[in-house]
Design a protein around this nucleic acid. Structure first.
Length: 479
RNA sequence: CGGGGCGUAGCGCAGCCUGGUAGCGCGUUCGGUUCGGGACCGAAAGGUCGUAGGUUCAAAUCCUAUCGCCCCGACCA
């Protein structure tokens, strides 16, 4: 009863989140602090994310490969900005086979260097380009402060690494993959995002340009949900990734990298969840529909289960992911709450009365209690269920977008700015100086999340120094 | 590393201020009634009070040290 109750989302967002992650059986604490054990239900969500992304990677011509977990320390040190950015958060292996190693090995914090090393040997001619490779793996970054899914010492992700003949091609690739992430976030996860460019101080260590998608969580804070980097020739020069062009001249390649991690599961939790628990977007939910049978007597149990199994088979036939909850010794009410906490988008209730009438009760997760309940005919059920799942997917997106818009303010002066970032995003003019950026962060803890592609267009004055500004940027406190 | 909080039964907590030999809820086990929104009644099992020292006739409680965890900052996807 009260044991399953979550703290209110509005009262204590952080505690709400932690308990939701644990109680919905998504993840668990690991022996090493800051690491995370992903439970089967949490992993099932991740598998659906992987499939949704892989479909898109296939369409853009990318293939998979696997690169080593251990990287010689000298590799990391070869690109100047890269080593400066990552040095503080590296885990280093110094002993192997009981002996001190001559050169320490770094556990990959990301794979640009080891992949750069491979590409240097694979690429000889313009005919070898472009190289379009993705890998699914986990990486380790020794963060000082961690939070389940959002920032763990080890996290799972995909990292794409490509090499091209020209700057234009590399830039097009970088932008294309950001579009892929935007499409994924909006159409699979029902998470509205703002795609844009990062400021110099927020850029990936070693990149010429970093792009990201930024989402707003249920407490108004921002989360970087995916990134795409144009690495220019920085890694190509450090690792000698060169090709012979059509004129027979030796040129350095232009490379890119892009990634999306298990952090996105955290985004889904924090964007859609309510005080009853998770709400999963139908397209990524491990179970899109749960069927809860209701019965008293053995005879009722027999007929109800018979009908329930028949309906399940029909829904599975229609390509819907269905769970029939046949667990014994639990009341229907308990099961309702149990699956609500796990975020199953649609519940089908079927009892003796429904069997007699040839009907079922549909209860959608995105609307509370009675409001979300409707009756439906058993005959041709799969069509109505499919439609309702599409509707739920859309309504989750609409709701999240409305929330973000309600918590985003166009601000004109610094006082308005300070109020705005207490509860959400502030869209404000910025002069472009990293000094102003740093001072604002110091004073308000708000950072520039991105410079959006879609611009309002009117020039204005920097929110802090009053200097001239050509574009508005998104400020927010971030996870 | 700085600031705050917490370690008591499988889980969540009370008890500590004002020392007197440990309690509540959930869960578990058994029996019965239940079952269309987190069931109820009865009975039972289950604890080196994070660890180590000290004060005291007596320590979960007071003092010291130490370890671990959570939250806030610095770092960051």
């Amino acid at each position: 009863m009260s044991e399953l109750k979550l703290p209110s989302r509005s009262e204590d967002f952080s505690e709400w989140y932690n308990q939701l992650v644990l109680k919905a059986e998504l993840a668990d604490y690991a022996p090493v602090r800051g690491c995370m054990i992903v439970r089967p239900y949490g992993w099932a969500i991740w598998e659906n994310i992987q499939q949704a992304l892989d479909r898109r990677f296939k369409a853009t011509g990318h293939v998979h490969a696997a690169f080593p977990l251990l990287i010689p320390q000298s590799f990391i040190e070869r690109e100047k900005a890269h080593v400066e950015g990552f040095a503080p958060e590296l885990a280093v292996v110094t002993i192997g086979g009981g002996k001190k190693l001559e050169e320490p090995l770094v556990i990959r914090p990301t794979s640009e260097t080891i992949i750069g090393h491979a590409y240097a040997r694979w690429i000889q001619s313009y005919r070898d380009l472009p190289v379009l490779i993705n890998q699914w793996n986990s990486v380790v970054r020794w963060e000082l402060r961690t939070k389940m899914f959002l920032r763990t010492l080890e996290f799972f992700w995909q990292e794409g690494h490509t090499a091209h003949a020209t700057y234009e091609e590399a830039e097009a690739e970088t932008r294309q993959m950001l579009d892929v992430y935007t499409d994924f976030a909006v159409n699979e996860a029902a998470v509205p995002v703002i795609p844009g460019r990062k400021t110099e101080s927020e850029r990936f260590a070693g990149a010429d340009q970093t792009y990201s998608i930024e989402a707003m969580m249920g407490d108004g804070r921002a989360l970087q949900a995916g990134t795409s980097h144009n690495l220019g020739q920085n890694f190509a020069k450090s690792f000698d990734i060169r090709y012979l062009d059509k004129e027979g001249k030796l040129q350095h390649c232009w490379t890119t990298s892009w990634g999306l991690s298990t952090r996105f599961i955290g985004a889904i939790i924090m964007v859609h969840g309510d005080d009853q628990g998770l709400i999963l977007p139908p397209r990524l939910a491990p179970f899109q529909v749960v069927v809860v049978p209701i019965f008293k007597t053995d005879e009722e149990k027999r007929v109800v289960l018979e009908t329930a199994r028949k309906l399940r088979a029909e829904l599975v036939e229609a390509g819907i992911r269905v769970k029939l909850d046949e667990r014994e010794g639990m009341t229907p009410g308990f099961k309702f709450n149990d699956w609500e906490m796990r975020g199953v988008p649609l519940r089908i209730e079927i009892g003796p009365k429904d069997v007699a009438k040839g009907s079922v009760v549909l209860a959608r997760r995105d609307k509370p209690g009675r409001e979300g309940k409707t009756f439906a005919e058993q005959a041709g059920l799969s069509r109505g269920v499919t439609d309702m799942l599409v509707d739920i997917q859309q309504s989750l997106y609409d709701r999240a977008l409305a929330f973000r818009e309600a918590h985003t303010q166009e601000v004109a002066d610094y006082n308005e700015f300070k109020t705005a970032i207490e509860s959400g995003f502030a869209s404000a003019h910025w002069c472009g100086s990293s000094a102003c950026e740093a001072q604002i962060k110091e004073q308000t803890r708000a950072t520039i999340r991105c410079i959006p592609f879609a611009q309002a267009g009117e020039p204005g004055r920097c929110i802090l120094c009053g200097g001239p500004s050509q574009e508005k940027v998104i400020f927010a406190r971030a996870y």
